[in-house]
Simulated assay, not measured.
Amino acid sequence: MDIDVLGTLAVRLNGVSIAPTAPKPRQVLALLALRAGQVVPVGVLTEELWGAEPPRSARATLQTYILQLRELITAALANGDGGGAGQRRQAKDVLLTVPGGYLLKGGDGTSDVREFERLAGSGYRAMDAEDFPQAARLLREALGLWTAPALADVHTGPQLRTEVKRLEESRLCALDQRVEADLRLGRHRELLAELTVLVNQYPTHESLCGQYMLALYRSGRRGEALDAYQRLRATLVRTMGLEPSPALAKLQRSILVSGPGTLPARPAASASMAPVG
Protein backbone atom coordinates (compact mmCIF):
# COMPACT_ATOMS: atom_id res chain seq x y z
CA MET A 1 0.00 0.00 0.00
CA ASP A 2 1.28 3.44 -0.97
CA ILE A 3 0.24 6.30 1.30
CA ASP A 4 0.66 10.01 0.55
CA VAL A 5 -0.62 12.69 2.92
CA LEU A 6 1.88 15.55 2.41
CA GLY A 7 -0.53 17.38 0.15
CA THR A 8 -3.71 15.76 -1.08
CA LEU A 9 -4.67 12.34 0.29
CA ALA A 10 -3.70 9.41 -1.92
CA VAL A 11 -3.88 5.79 -0.78
CA ARG A 12 -3.23 3.13 -3.42
CA LEU A 13 -3.32 -0.66 -3.24
CA ASN A 14 -1.99 -2.59 -6.24
CA GLY A 15 -1.82 0.78 -7.98
CA VAL A 16 -5.55 1.37 -7.48
CA SER A 17 -6.89 4.24 -5.37
CA ILE A 18 -8.87 3.21 -2.33
CA ALA A 19 -9.61 6.80 -1.28
CA PRO A 20 -13.36 7.52 -1.22
CA THR A 21 -14.73 10.84 -2.38
CA ALA A 22 -17.33 11.26 0.38
CA PRO A 23 -15.95 13.53 3.15
CA LYS A 24 -16.47 11.38 6.27
CA PRO A 25 -15.21 8.04 4.86
CA ARG A 26 -12.26 10.05 3.56
CA GLN A 27 -11.59 11.30 7.09
CA VAL A 28 -11.68 7.74 8.39
CA LEU A 29 -9.20 6.57 5.77
CA ALA A 30 -6.90 9.54 6.39
CA LEU A 31 -6.67 8.79 10.10
CA LEU A 32 -6.19 5.05 9.53
CA ALA A 33 -3.53 5.76 6.89
CA LEU A 34 -1.61 8.17 9.11
CA ARG A 35 -1.54 5.47 11.78
CA ALA A 36 -1.07 2.52 9.44
CA GLY A 37 0.02 -0.56 11.38
CA GLN A 38 -1.49 0.80 14.61
CA VAL A 39 -4.87 0.16 16.19
CA VAL A 40 -7.10 3.23 15.94
CA PRO A 41 -9.75 2.98 18.68
CA VAL A 42 -13.41 3.38 17.82
CA GLY A 43 -13.59 6.31 20.24
CA VAL A 44 -10.80 8.13 18.42
CA LEU A 45 -12.51 7.69 15.05
CA THR A 46 -15.84 8.76 16.54
CA GLU A 47 -14.31 11.92 18.00
CA GLU A 48 -12.67 12.72 14.68
CA LEU A 49 -15.96 12.47 12.83
CA TRP A 50 -18.41 14.04 15.30
CA GLY A 51 -16.42 15.72 18.05
CA ALA A 52 -17.28 15.45 21.72
CA GLU A 53 -21.01 14.83 21.17
CA PRO A 54 -21.44 12.02 18.62
CA PRO A 55 -24.94 10.96 17.61
CA ARG A 56 -26.44 7.77 19.00
CA SER A 57 -26.01 6.18 15.58
CA ALA A 58 -22.26 6.96 15.51
CA ARG A 59 -20.99 3.38 15.91
CA ALA A 60 -23.34 1.99 13.25
CA THR A 61 -22.48 4.83 10.87
CA LEU A 62 -18.75 4.26 11.42
CA GLN A 63 -19.22 0.58 10.59
CA THR A 64 -20.90 1.65 7.34
CA TYR A 65 -17.87 3.78 6.47
CA ILE A 66 -15.56 0.83 7.21
CA LEU A 67 -17.64 -1.37 4.89
CA GLN A 68 -17.38 1.28 2.15
CA LEU A 69 -13.60 1.33 2.53
CA ARG A 70 -13.48 -2.46 2.37
CA GLU A 71 -15.44 -2.41 -0.87
CA LEU A 72 -12.78 -0.17 -2.39
CA ILE A 73 -10.05 -2.42 -0.99
CA THR A 74 -11.76 -5.48 -2.47
CA ALA A 75 -11.76 -3.88 -5.92
CA ALA A 76 -8.08 -2.99 -5.57
CA LEU A 77 -7.16 -6.48 -4.42
CA ALA A 78 -8.90 -7.98 -7.45
CA ASN A 79 -6.63 -5.87 -9.62
CA GLY A 80 -3.36 -7.39 -8.57
CA ASP A 81 -3.15 -10.02 -5.84
CA GLY A 82 -1.57 -13.21 -7.10
CA GLY A 83 -1.78 -16.76 -5.86
CA GLY A 84 -4.59 -19.25 -5.88
CA ALA A 85 -8.05 -18.66 -4.54
CA GLY A 86 -7.08 -19.95 -1.12
CA GLN A 87 -4.16 -17.50 -0.92
CA ARG A 88 -5.90 -14.36 -2.13
CA ARG A 89 -6.18 -11.65 0.47
CA GLN A 90 -9.51 -10.25 1.46
CA ALA A 91 -10.39 -6.72 2.45
CA LYS A 92 -10.69 -7.71 6.10
CA ASP A 93 -7.03 -8.84 5.93
CA VAL A 94 -6.02 -5.28 4.93
CA LEU A 95 -8.45 -3.28 7.07
CA LEU A 96 -8.76 -5.34 10.22
CA THR A 97 -11.39 -5.23 12.93
CA VAL A 98 -9.54 -5.69 16.22
CA PRO A 99 -10.67 -5.45 19.84
CA GLY A 100 -11.64 -1.85 20.43
CA GLY A 101 -10.93 -0.47 16.97
CA TYR A 102 -9.56 -0.89 13.46
CA LEU A 103 -6.11 -1.36 11.95
CA LEU A 104 -4.99 -0.61 8.39
CA LYS A 105 -2.07 -2.76 7.22
CA GLY A 106 0.32 -0.63 5.22
CA GLY A 107 2.53 -3.55 4.23
CA ASP A 108 5.77 -2.83 2.40
CA GLY A 109 4.46 0.08 0.34
CA THR A 110 5.68 3.63 0.28
CA SER A 111 4.81 6.44 2.68
CA ASP A 112 5.69 10.05 1.96
CA VAL A 113 5.72 10.76 5.72
CA ARG A 114 8.25 7.98 6.37
CA GLU A 115 10.40 9.17 3.47
CA PHE A 116 10.22 12.76 4.68
CA GLU A 117 11.29 11.71 8.17
CA ARG A 118 14.13 9.58 6.80
CA LEU A 119 15.52 12.37 4.61
CA ALA A 120 15.04 15.06 7.25
CA GLY A 121 16.77 12.90 9.88
CA SER A 122 19.73 12.39 7.56
CA GLY A 123 19.78 16.13 6.92
CA TYR A 124 19.87 16.92 10.64
CA ARG A 125 22.76 14.51 11.12
CA ALA A 126 24.62 16.20 8.26
CA MET A 127 24.03 19.56 9.97
CA ASP A 128 25.48 18.19 13.21
CA ALA A 129 28.52 17.03 11.24
CA GLU A 130 28.79 20.50 9.61
CA ASP A 131 28.36 18.93 6.16
CA PHE A 132 26.25 21.83 4.98
CA PRO A 133 26.08 20.97 1.25
CA GLN A 134 24.79 17.50 2.10
CA ALA A 135 22.40 18.88 4.70
CA ALA A 136 20.96 21.42 2.28
CA ARG A 137 20.51 18.75 -0.40
CA LEU A 138 18.82 16.22 1.88
CA LEU A 139 16.54 18.74 3.55
CA ARG A 140 15.56 20.24 0.19
CA GLU A 141 14.70 16.76 -1.05
CA ALA A 142 12.64 16.10 2.08
CA LEU A 143 10.72 19.35 1.70
CA GLY A 144 10.14 18.58 -1.98
CA LEU A 145 7.84 15.75 -0.93
CA TRP A 146 5.31 18.34 0.22
CA THR A 147 3.00 19.29 -2.64
CA ALA A 148 0.57 21.29 -0.46
CA PRO A 149 -0.37 21.47 3.23
CA ALA A 150 -0.87 18.01 4.70
CA LEU A 151 -4.28 16.48 3.92
CA ALA A 152 -5.17 19.57 1.93
CA ASP A 153 -8.31 18.00 0.47
CA VAL A 154 -9.59 16.29 3.63
CA HIS A 155 -12.04 17.77 6.12
CA THR A 156 -10.30 17.54 9.49
CA GLY A 157 -11.76 16.95 12.92
CA PRO A 158 -9.88 17.20 16.23
CA GLN A 159 -7.70 14.11 15.70
CA LEU A 160 -6.62 14.97 12.17
CA ARG A 161 -6.05 18.62 13.08
CA THR A 162 -3.56 17.46 15.70
CA GLU A 163 -1.83 15.23 13.14
CA VAL A 164 -1.71 18.03 10.57
CA LYS A 165 -0.24 20.43 13.15
CA ARG A 166 2.41 17.86 14.07
CA LEU A 167 3.37 17.38 10.42
CA GLU A 168 3.48 21.13 9.84
CA GLU A 169 5.81 21.58 12.81
CA SER A 170 8.08 18.88 11.34
CA ARG A 171 8.05 20.69 7.99
CA LEU A 172 8.91 24.03 9.60
CA CYS A 173 11.79 22.44 11.52
CA ALA A 174 13.21 20.97 8.31
CA LEU A 175 12.70 24.28 6.52
CA ASP A 176 14.49 26.18 9.28
CA GLN A 177 17.48 23.83 9.10
CA ARG A 178 17.60 23.92 5.31
CA VAL A 179 17.65 27.72 5.31
CA GLU A 180 20.39 27.65 7.93
CA ALA A 181 22.44 25.26 5.80
CA ASP A 182 22.04 27.56 2.80
CA LEU A 183 23.05 30.58 4.87
CA ARG A 184 26.18 28.79 6.04
CA LEU A 185 26.96 28.15 2.38
CA GLY A 186 26.76 31.89 1.64
CA ARG A 187 23.52 31.73 -0.34
CA HIS A 188 21.99 34.75 1.38
CA ARG A 189 20.98 36.58 -1.80
CA GLU A 190 19.31 33.49 -3.23
CA LEU A 191 17.30 33.13 -0.01
CA LEU A 192 15.88 36.64 0.15
CA ALA A 193 12.79 36.07 -2.01
CA GLU A 194 11.88 32.86 -0.17
CA LEU A 195 12.43 34.38 3.27
CA THR A 196 10.38 37.46 2.36
CA VAL A 197 7.42 35.17 1.75
CA LEU A 198 8.08 33.07 4.86
CA VAL A 199 8.28 35.94 7.34
CA ASN A 200 4.97 37.24 6.02
CA GLN A 201 3.44 33.78 6.24
CA TYR A 202 4.78 33.22 9.79
CA PRO A 203 4.94 36.74 11.27
CA THR A 204 5.82 35.57 14.82
CA HIS A 205 8.41 32.92 13.89
CA GLU A 206 11.61 34.26 15.43
CA SER A 207 14.02 31.86 13.78
CA LEU A 208 12.81 32.70 10.28
CA CYS A 209 12.94 36.40 11.12
CA GLY A 210 16.51 36.04 12.35
CA GLN A 211 17.49 34.24 9.16
CA TYR A 212 15.81 36.96 7.11
CA MET A 213 17.62 39.68 9.03
CA LEU A 214 20.95 37.96 8.49
CA ALA A 215 20.30 37.42 4.77
CA LEU A 216 19.35 41.09 4.36
CA TYR A 217 22.37 42.29 6.31
CA ARG A 218 24.77 40.14 4.33
CA SER A 219 23.22 41.48 1.14
CA GLY A 220 24.06 45.04 2.20
CA ARG A 221 20.52 45.89 3.30
CA ARG A 222 21.20 46.75 6.91
CA GLY A 223 18.27 49.13 7.36
CA GLU A 224 15.79 46.56 6.07
CA ALA A 225 17.25 43.98 8.45
CA LEU A 226 16.59 46.31 11.39
CA ASP A 227 13.09 47.06 10.07
CA ALA A 228 12.35 43.31 10.00
CA TYR A 229 13.23 43.10 13.68
CA GLN A 230 10.98 46.00 14.57
CA ARG A 231 8.06 44.48 12.66
CA LEU A 232 8.48 41.18 14.50
CA ARG A 233 8.77 42.95 17.86
CA ALA A 234 5.62 44.99 17.22
CA THR A 235 3.72 41.85 16.22
CA LEU A 236 4.87 39.89 19.27
CA VAL A 237 4.01 42.72 21.66
CA ARG A 238 0.62 43.33 20.06
CA THR A 239 -0.51 39.72 19.73
CA MET A 240 1.20 38.00 22.66
CA GLY A 241 2.48 40.67 25.00
CA LEU A 242 6.01 39.32 24.54
CA GLU A 243 9.37 40.81 23.65
CA PRO A 244 11.66 39.01 21.15
CA SER A 245 13.99 36.40 22.60
CA PRO A 246 17.37 37.50 23.99
CA ALA A 247 19.13 35.72 21.11
CA LEU A 248 17.19 37.66 18.47
CA ALA A 249 17.64 40.93 20.38
CA LYS A 250 21.38 40.23 20.45
CA LEU A 251 21.38 39.76 16.67
CA GLN A 252 19.54 43.06 16.28
CA ARG A 253 22.08 44.90 18.47
CA SER A 254 24.93 43.30 16.58
CA ILE A 255 23.53 44.53 13.27
CA LEU A 256 22.85 47.95 14.77
CA VAL A 257 26.44 48.53 15.89
CA SER A 258 28.16 46.91 12.92
CA GLY A 259 29.45 48.97 10.05
CA PRO A 260 28.20 48.41 6.49
CA GLY A 261 31.51 46.86 5.51
CA THR A 262 31.61 44.17 8.17
CA LEU A 263 29.48 41.46 6.57
CA PRO A 264 30.29 38.08 8.14
CA ALA A 265 31.37 35.09 6.10
CA ARG A 266 29.11 32.74 8.09
CA PRO A 267 27.37 32.69 11.48
CA ALA A 268 29.18 31.34 14.46
CA ALA A 269 26.44 29.08 15.83
CA SER A 270 22.89 29.43 14.57
CA ALA A 271 22.28 31.10 11.24
CA SER A 272 19.19 32.77 12.63
CA MET A 273 20.63 34.04 15.91
CA ALA A 274 24.40 34.41 15.42
CA PRO A 275 26.10 37.76 16.03
CA VAL A 276 27.18 39.53 12.87
CA GLY A 277 30.12 41.51 14.11
Rank of each mutant, 00 (worst) to 15 (best):
P20L: 12
P25Y: 10
H155F: 07
P41L: 04
R238E: 05
G223I: 15
D81S: 13
K250D: 11
R26K: 13
T21K: 14
T74N: 09
Q211K: 12
V5Y: 06
V199S: 08
P41T: 02
D4M: 04
R125Q: 11
D108W: 11
G277D: 08
F116M: 05
T162H: 11
T8Y: 07
N79C: 09
L191M: 10
L6R: 00
S17R: 09
R118P: 05
E224L: 13
G51R: 01
R137G: 15
G157W: 00
Y229S: 04
T61Y: 00
E130F: 14
E168T: 15
R35M: 14
L95M: 09
Q252S: 10
A120F: 01
A136H: 10
K165L: 15
T162V: 13
R89N: 12
T262V: 07
V179W: 08
R88D: 06
K105A: 15
V154C: 03
R166D: 15
L226R: 04
I66A: 09
G84L: 10
A33N: 08
S17K: 07
L151G: 08
G43V: 01
P55K: 14
L145C: 05
L226A: 01
L6K: 02
L6N: 03
D108P: 05
D182W: 09
L236G: 05
L185W: 10
V39H: 03
A249P: 04
V276F: 13
G144S: 08
E130D: 14
K92Q: 11
G37N: 00
E115H: 14
L198V: 12
P55T: 11
I3A: 03
A22D: 11
A150F: 01
S272K: 09
T147V: 11
A152D: 11
P41N: 08
L104E: 09
L214E: 02
D227C: 01
G220F: 09
L77H: 02
M127P: 03
P149V: 03
R56N: 13
R233L: 00
M127S: 15
Q252N: 13
A225F: 04
Q90L: 15
R137S: 15
A148T: 06
R140A: 11
M1R: 03
D2C: 02
D4E: 10
A193G: 05
L6Q: 03
A30W: 04
T147G: 14
L29W: 02
N14F: 15
A58I: 01
L45D: 08
K24R: 13
L145A: 08
L143N: 10
A36L: 09
A234L: 09
